[in-house]
């Protein structure tokens, strides 16, 4: 999967599965950026064919509802823009 990388403080592996049209996903991205942590993000709605299937399978592993944003921090996942939870997880 071709994630876009955002540089910042290393807090371990952080992956954001998002949709390019979703405002909550945008706000989650902005929150991570404002916290200055390094993370990777991918817009699943812009993927096609096998690449999309691969990303969908990855999201489902953490979040069977296949909803967005799905943020994966290490092995823990946070579904939706949950500012408090995200800040706690990335202390």
């Amino acid at each position: 999967m071709n994630f876009e990388h955002v540089a910042g403080k290393d807090k371990g592996k952080i992956s954001l599965f998002a949709l390019s049209t979703c405002i909550w996903c945008k706000k989650t991205r902005e929150l991570l950026s404002s916290m200055g942590v390094a993370f990777d993000y991918i817009y699943v709605d812009l993927l096609k064919g096998e690449e999309r299937a691969e990303a969908v399978a990855a999201v489902k592993k953490y979040n069977p509802s296949l909803s967005f944003p799905t943020l994966v921090i290490g092995e823990k996942s946070i579904v939706g823009l949950k500012e408090k939870e995200i800040k706690e997880a990335l202390g």
Partner: peptide
């Protein structure tokens, strides 16, 4: 989404 799919799907869903 209307351009992409031909219908106005929820922007926050796949």
């Amino acid at each position: 989404n209307e351009r992409r799919y031909g219908y106005r799907a929820c922007p926050c869903r796949l």
